[in-house]
């Protein structure tokens, strides 16, 4: 074992310097410590040669090992894509309506779809998919363009009111402020509000007259009973959900000026497997049909 070094009965040695009578004891570092110190110097020099280190005018020296975080990330992304290639192919080749029956695809779509959603969709629809005024809540069971997996997939692929794509969904409610006199608009707004379970008409005496205006101007798209029409993106007026608000002022504003909500198409920006994953993710949030 290591014996204690023999105690020497002598004055401890000093560094040999004296300042105003003050001397400094000489306490050298242990030998192994000194060697580690030298080793770190050697390692430090090697490091500046091997890795990006010295700042130059344009950029830092790149180092002979050619190491770069950017390249590493690209490589990691590539590796992750390769690792997922098989299940991505399975997802792309699966029949959309059969995906919910496949636990493996569902588990994958839930996590992959959530990642896509939080990256590309959350800006408008919210991180919890609850939407905002003008941006549909994807958790509820009301769908302007249909809530089956195929419908959601189609909407995401082509977008809404996307003028570059002839297949895109396009709703076109006229701005009735330019068509109808204001008193008729007020009548029809009161009638529409009477249809919703969530609101009462502002002036119940106008409802009957509003029904007539509705039948002539609105029923073609929203249906004679106000149930809406998914093929035209015409919302159901008899439910409790109002994308732009269901109070008198909001409904009147909608009737007068129309809304023209848009959603970008994603088929050129995302891979098909990403669109399918996010469609599946949205479909299983609670409102899917």
């Amino acid at each position: 074992m290591a014996k204690q070094p023999k105690q020497q009965k002598q004055e401890p040695s000093t560094t040999g310097h004296e300042w105003d009578g003050i001397q400094e004891y000489n306490n050298p570092l242990p030998r192994w410590w000194v060697w580690i110190f030298y080793a770190t110097i050697v390692w430090g020099i090697w490091y500046t040669i091997a890795y990006p280190a010295w700042p130059m005018i344009e950029e830092a020296t790149s180092g002979y090992k050619g190491w770069s975080t950017r390249a590493n990330v690209a490589q990691e992304i590539k590796a992750a894509e390769e690792a997922n290639a098989e299940i991505n192919a399975k997802l792309v080749n699966a029949e959309l309506s059969k995906i919910p029956q496949d636990p493996e695809l569902m588990a994958y779509s839930r996590s992959a779809g959530e990642a896509v959603f939080e990256t590309w969709c959350a800006q408008c629809h919210g991180s919890g998919a609850a939407g905002f005024k003008g941006y549909p809540n994807l958790l509820d069971n009301a769908w302007l363009w249909g809530g089956t997996l195929e419908d959601i997939h189609y909407t995401i692929s082509h977008g809404i009111r996307n003028e570059d794509d002839a297949d895109a969904r396009f709703s076109e409610m006229p701005a009735f402020g330019e068509i109808l006199p204001e008193d008729q608009i007020e009548q029809v707004v009161n009638y529409v509000m009477s249809m919703s379970p969530a609101y009462e008409p502002k002036d119940a005496s106008l409802v009957e007259a509003g029904a007539e205006v509705y039948d002539i101007n609105c029923a073609a798209c929203h249906g004679p009973e106000g149930k809406g029409m998914e093929s035209m993106g015409a919302p159901n007026l008899t439910d409790a959900i109002w994308l732009y608000g269901g109070d008198y002022a909001a409904v009147k504003d909608t009737v007068m000026n129309s809304r023209y909500g848009v959603m970008p198409p994603w088929q050129d920006r995302l891979e098909e497997y990403e669109i399918r994953a996010v469609a599946t993710y949205v479909h299983q949030l609670g409102g899917g049909q």
Binding site: M1, P5, S13, E18, N26, P28, P30
Partner: peptide, 20 residues
């Protein structure tokens, strides 16, 4: 400034003595 005679530093390191 005066200077004391530099001495060989006292080693605090003790090599391991093998045990048998």
């Amino acid at each position: 400034m005066t200077s004391t005679e530099p001495q060989a530093p006292e080693s605090l390191y003790a090599a391991r003595e093998p045990i048998f």
